[in-house]
Design a protein around this nucleic acid. Structure first.
Lengths: 345, 345
DNA sequence: TTGAAAGCGCTAACAG
DNA sequence: CTGTTAGCGCTTTCAA
């Protein structure tokens, strides 16, 4: 904090204002003086104080992200690290930083948003894990905090969304299983409170309907490993038990697969399984998991850019659609058991 | 940003100074006026501007964390999410926030630290993944950025450390395997550039030496899944191949186990395996992984507190030692194959 | 105990 | 095109 704008101004024989203009590439100084000022600034090793800059320009130069997941779940989900890395990619070019808040305890989430908004710690936030009728969009409105949402909320939202449709991935998974001769294809869904929990379920239903099949083998879970076990157990207990299960995420697929095997079922001999996310460990499972690969890093990059554009006033106001995820076929899916799907003679 | 300290001062019929004192619980105002001021402030809904506060007090009210890992690795490592959640637990009580930086590209790490330091964006940083002769401690010194390190660096460091010794965990793993009759116990180490890569290796060596055995079945890897496969392949290729392998983390253990099985080896029949970290998915592997459970959340909590204390001038200056991790025995470890360890007649 | 006033380092409106 | 100057909202010193 040694050298300030005044020092530079003195040394260059100009006013503070001139230095400010020179620094920010704004008109108001001749190229000659601008060059001289920049030169002097460099010699003196001047680093403009973010705090002073923020105070006068009423900006925080920071974006906020509040993550409200159980740390356990967080630790296994490959989404956030990659997503955050993507955000950083964008911020690295923009003199902005990321303020991260992990809200574990109930009620901590709203407090976290207030904390970010109150003192003006961030200029905007990225909203992830959007929920059905998400109360946070009202909150952000109240706090007058600009935002971008990941996928479009199902309630009215004034914020631009950056979306990656789950439909195609799930559809591809179901079609892959149909092609393998499966007819009784179940779905272990994530918490239906989340819109991505809902959309994945709907995509499964639609794909089944398109094949003229009933979408009745559904069990709701919560994206956690124990939840996956319980839901799998429920489906396998049914008389018309499925020969294939499409899971809403990798963690549930992993624990579901493990459970099925512990019950003496062979995967994929008796039961085919698909996940969602392409967590790295899934390729080391036994058998390796067929799953759906998304691109969270790109999602983060684009979402951060959208938010910056919005703050900057250069955002079109329209939603952004990212490329849909794609199916990754591995060994956890195979032909339907012949006892159940008798080929035509 | 509507209501400011002046508004409150006016409304309460006092000066700005008085409001400041009242807010910060400092002497200089009578209890009566203090009460009145606080009352008025609440009525007006005044939120002190962090930016203004920061400018005059020369503080950022933020801590920094730079994570320099491959996003892929990050996504599978349960450490950071829990660690960050721990940091938040502490910060939640202290009006501080966390600025997170993910540095992926080479060279990005140093830039990230400079970015945090230069404008005065953070008041201090937490240094994780400490390396052998870590250049960052010199950098932080140059930047005059207060810090706390996770484990004590092996080079001279002026920063207090918060440590969790790996020794006990690895020792417990080796002793567990010895008790099962194993003699040829190998170690797949993490990158030896990291001090935790080194200390885990040394712990394995020490435990072997203590049992009067040679510690020669070592293969260095890099904490990644492919690395684990390669190192495992190397060990299994040896004529005196191990009957048990202690891995430096869960991801390598997972991919190593998967590889061994793909080679026709049974786990734990032919080969016993232990991991490190207790990632959640490890209990759903086939077989579930014997591993070492650490407490990253607590680590984060304590580290953040230590840093705050240091900024506050109330830090003792001594290192903090956390409880050592503990061994979690699951099904990936079993008795040594009888063909190799012939029991005494 | 209280109030006034001088910064903190920068931006931006204004006058020259 | 350039320089001056008045804030931004808070802290803190100094008189009263």
């Amino acid at each position: 904090m040694a050298v300030t704008i005044s020092d530079v101004a003195h040394a260059a024989g100009v006013s503070k204002g001139a230095v400010s203009y020179a620094l920010n590439n704004q008109p108001g100084v001749s190229d000659a003086t601008r060059g001289r000022i920049l030169q002097v600034a460099k010699e003196l090793g001047w680093k403009p104080s973010l705090r002073a800059k923020g105070l006068s320009s009423a900006k925080a130069y920071a974006l906020g992200l509040v993550v409200a997941r159980d740390p356990k779940l967080l630790g296994t989900d490959p989404f956030f690290p990659a997503f955050i890395a993507g955000i950083e990619t964008t911020l690295a070019e923009h003199d902005y930083t990321l303020v991260l808040s992990v809200a574990t305890a109930p009620g901590a989430e709203e407090r976290a948003y207030r904390k970010l908004a109150d003192g003006g710690r961030v200029d905007g936030v990225i909203l992830t894990d959007v929920r059905h009728n998400d109360s946070r969009i009202g909150l952000l409105r109240e706090l007058k905090l600009p935002a971008v949402t990941l996928n479009r909320p199902d309630s009215d939202s004034p914020f631009p969304a950056v979306s990656m449709d789950d439909t195609d991935g799930i559809t591809a998974a179901v079609e892959h299983l149909l092609a393998l001769g499966h007819v009784r294809i179940g779905h272990v869904g994530g918490a239906q409170e989340y819109i991505h929990g809902r959309s994945r379920r709907r995509a499964w239903e639609a794909a089944m309907a398109a094949a003229g099949l009933a979408a009745d083998l559904f069990a709701e879970a919560d994206f956690t490993a124990p939840g996956g076990v319980a839901a799998t157990a429920e489906l396998l207990r049914r008389p018309d038990r499925p020969t294939a299960i499409v899971y809403a995420n990798d963690l549930m697929a992993t624990s579901g697969q493990s459970f099925a095997q512990s019950q003496g079922l062979s995967v994929p001999g008796d039961l085919s399984i698909t996940g969602y996310d392409n967590a790295e460990f899934t390729q080391y499972l036994n058998p390796p998991l067929t799953t759906i690969a998304t691109d969270p890093m790109r999602w983060g990059r684009v979402a951060a850019q959208a938010l910056l554009d919005q703050l900057n006033g250069t955002h079109s106001g329209e939603d952004t659609d990212l490329q849909a995820p794609s199916l990754l076929v591995r060994a956890s899916t195979g032909p339907a058991p012949s006892t159940t799907t008798k080929p035509a003679p």
